[in-house]
Nucleic acid binder design. Structure first.
Length: 779
DNA sequence: GATTAGGCTTCG
């Protein structure tokens, strides 16, 4: 048991002592008395310097006086502390502190005759299971924090679902929403922060401070924070956090694998392995439970009409009028749309004129309003900013340059609207700086002319669409990728010929099956040639829950080639989730290059992990080691693709077989490579469709068996992409427009082959389309 | 010493 500081408010400790220990009077401390569940409480009247015993153990002696017992002749006792407890106490102790000593050993005092104190002394050490509680006022606690980063004050942290009205607590949380500090209508800066934690509770905190620096340095959703001494109140039926005296915060980047460096204004703070562990756990939890894909964007990725967060450098600023202020910024990329230029008086414009001129085509003019003006005015040219919730507003078309994009930071702080200054040490700033410095500005000037040309070429009017459709009716909508020299054969001739043979045909697609396109996606084993349905997501989840029943085997955690983190969900199920991060060269890599393995996660959690990590492998614990799940579950998730293995042709190997791949110089984590070392025969996604083709001579059913070539859409990705599904639907509508007469259908040019399928009872000829693709301008 | 704000986009 450690040394704990107990905070005293109005004479009462906020955290009670453990209930199993009882106070013992000095009088009753006698040799032979069982002191197992007793504690002694007294005030420090004397302490001796910390020394070391002959064997190197730290040793610290203090004298405690029991003032509550004034009628006793002897009212003080020596306390001897050993080891870490001695060191910890010596650092935080100050005279007059009220100490509680529990789990002590009562030993006859050799010095009682000389010092006139109790004839026994108390011996304590962490090894003996002792505990020291020190009652301290908030100032003392703050002061003790200044003493050391690595020692003592042990804080208790309250999970967000345990908060009680009127308490002052310490807590950890992951930022779900925040308003960067802004000038309040009172005297202080204000920042609103909403936190979540694995208890799935949510807490919105309103933080005030006259000192901008003492508010948490949150840069994005997903950051992890530690708040000390935050007051909990009930407001509108919900718990609310608010700054109280002595409020202090640490903020950490929430990205798994990045260095755990606290951002804080405090010069000194407690920061031990415990903190590191907690931050790691929260990062891992957030990675699979919190969607952090915010509205961040580069100027090149701006979406008209939407709001986004822009990380940029300030190169100019100017007062526009009483309610708006102009910021000229750049991020090295070019907005693909014409952007507005806000005209200001030359004398109002601050910034280096040469640079402003040079960067004019890469600069975004952002007009900030009302409450944001004050902060905007104070910004230094050259500083790096994150401007939150910038509105990319579609300008009015009656302007001379047609419709353009305007950038506004509207008044108010809804949705976290505001401006944050990023320090140069911020990794994203470093990245941006490097990028800006590496930019060849001459080239970007050229790019400017190119991209405006491109813009002229890409209008998307209704008229364009019509002419596109007409073109589709004249030219074939599919083309051959080979065999162009062959002549066409009519369908009737083909049907009357013996198989196998190959033909070039020109035909129309009368109908196709299945009509529901997602039903056309199957899994194919190229080894045993079997076809099977893609398992439904809920089957997978069911299987995962089955595997979660076996408790994670902690002996398998954090081996030489991976680091593991385990936590328990705070819901009723109390599900245990373990994530194993595969290391490379002893180090965790950038998340985008990292393979993670997960035990006990749900499908949803895994999809979230795939957004951040290179690959995700669902695993389960066995006595012998980590294993893949049953092959009804995928053996790998990567990007948008869930990879399955063939049950018949695979011989799954233990997960340890992956470790040689991790040891490679640059692990590529290719699915085929992963499958091979794990003994998996991977199944391939394929579109299987039946086309009914007509050419006026006879109808012919031909099968399409396509991984990607025909539709130019990877079959493996279509089930997880709305965009690709829409694209495929459009393609099919072009090949076979619904509601059209036969005459109005477009022509397809295909290459087909006939083949025989025989069994005991019958013999049939089938046809398959190959070496054919949808025409370029149809896709 | 109290107050500020108390998330859920836009007048421009």
């Amino acid at each position: 048991m450690p040394v704990l500081l107990l905070k005293v408010v109005n004479g009462v400790a906020e955290t009670p002592l453990p209930s199993h220990i009882q106070r013992e009077d000095l009088n009753n401390l006698r040799e032979g008395v069982d002191c197992t569940n007793k504690y002694f409480q007294g005030t420090v009247t004397l302490s001796y310097p910390l020394t070391k015993l002959a064997d190197g153990t730290d040793f610290f002696k203090i004298v405690l006086q029991d003032l509550s017992n004034s009628c006793t002749r002897i009212n003080s006792i020596n306390v001897l502390m050993y080891g870490k407890m001695a060191e910890d106490c010596s650092k935080v102790l100050s005279h007059g502190d009220n100490f509680v000593i529990a789990g002590f050993k009562l030993v006859k005092s050799p010095t009682a005759a000389e010092d006139g104190r109790h004839d026994c002394h108390l011996e304590v050490s962490e090894d003996a299971g002792s505990a020291v509680y020190i009652y301290a006022n908030p100032k003392r606690i703050a002061a003790s924090e200044t003493l050391s980063m690595s020692v003592a004050p042990k804080y208790a942290y309250t999970s967000l679902n345990q908060l009680k009205d009127g308490t002052i607590v310490n807590l950890y949380g992951v930022v779900k929403f925040f308003k960067p500090p802004y000038v309040s209508k009172g005297t202080d800066y204000c920042s609103v922060v909403t936190l979540v934690d694995p208890s799935n509770a949510k807490l919105t905190c309103t933080l005030f401070s006259g000192n901008l620096d003492s508010l948490p340095k949150i840069y994005k959703v997903g950051d992890v924070v530690r708040f000390h001494r935050i007051k909990i109140r009930e407001y509108n039926g919900q718990m609310q956090g608010i700054t109280s005296g002595g409020f202090a915060s640490l903020t950490f980047d929430g990205t798994v694998g990045t260095p755990i460096v606290p951002r804080t204004s405090s010069k000194v703070y407690t920061f031990t392995d415990e903190e590191v562990k907690t931050v790691k756990e929260l990062r891992a939890w957030a990675a699979s439970n919190l969607s952090i894909s915010g509205p961040a964007a580069k100027l090149s990725g701006v979406q008209p009409m939407l709001f986004f967060d822009l990380t940029c450098q300030l190169i100019g600023k100017a007062k526009v009028d009483g309610s708006s202020f102009l910021l000229k910024v750049w991020d090295g990329t070019k907005c693909p749309y014409p952007t507005w230029k806000v005209s200001v008086e030359d004398r109002e414009l601050e910034g280096e004129k040469g640079l402003l001129y040079q960067l004019q085509n890469l600069t975004a003019d952002i007009l900030v309003y009302d409450n944001h003006m004050q902060l905007a005015k104070s910004l230094k040219i050259g500083s790096f900013l994150r401007i939150y919730s910038v509105h990319a507003k579609q300008g009015s078309a009656d302007n001379e340059d047609g419709s353009h994009i305007e950038f506004h930071l509207h008044g108010g702080t809804c949705y976290g609207r505001g401006i944050g200054v990023l320090p140069e040490s911020n990794p994203e700033v470093k990245e941006l700086k490097e990028f800006l410095e590496s930019m060849d500005l001459e080239e970007s000037q050229d790019m400017e002319s190119v991209s405006s040309l491109e813009l002229e070429g890409t209008s998307n009017s209704v008229a364009d669409l019509e002419s596109h459709l007409q073109r589709c009716q004249q030219l074939p909508v599919t083309v051959l990728t080979d065999h162009q020299d062959l002549k066409n054969t009519d369908l009737k001739t083909i049907l009357n010929s013996t198989a196998p043979q190959q033909y070039r045909i020109r035909a129309k697609l009368r109908t196709y099956h299945p009509q529901k396109l997602y039903q056309s996606v199957k899994l194919h084993c190229s080894k045993c040639n079997s076809l099977q349905e893609v398992p439904a997501g809920d089957d997978f989840d069911f299987n995962l829950q089955g595997s979660a029943v076996t408790a994670p085997n902690t002996e398998l955690h954090s081996m030489s080639w991976y680091d593991s983190i385990m936590w328990t969900t705070q819901d009723q199920k109390q599900r245990k989730i373990v994530i194993h991060f595969v290391k490379h060269d002893e180090l965790l890599q950038h998340p985008k290059d990292t393979l993670v393995m997960i035990e006990g996660g749900t499908l949803k959690e895994m999809w979230k992990l795939t957004k951040r990590f290179k690959c995700v492998i669902p695993v389960r614990s066995t006595e012998d080691g980590l294993q893949l799940l049953d092959l009804s579950s995928p053996f790998l998730l990567q990007g948008n693709v869930t990879y399955y293995g063939c049950k018949q042709c695979s011989t799954p190997k233990p997960i340890n077989s992956l470790s040689p791949l991790a040891a490679e110089q640059q692990p590529s984590w290719e699915p085929t490579e992963i499958a091979e070392v794990l003994g998996i025969e991977p199944l391939q996604y394929v579109f299987v469709m039946k086309f009914t083709l007509v050419d006026g001579t006879a109808p012919l059913n031909a099968y399409l068996f396509d991984y990607e070539k025909f539709f130019q859409i990877p079959a493996s990705e279509i089930l997880t992409s709305n965009y690709l599904q829409q694209k495929m639907e459009m393609t099919m509508n072009t090949l076979c427009p619904p509601g059209r007469k036969l005459d109005d259908l477009p022509w397809l040019e295909c290459f087909i082959k006939s083949y025989n399928v025989k069994d005991e009872t019958k013999h049939q000829v089938y046809y398959q389309i190959f070496d054919t693709t949808v025409a370029e301008d149809v896709v």
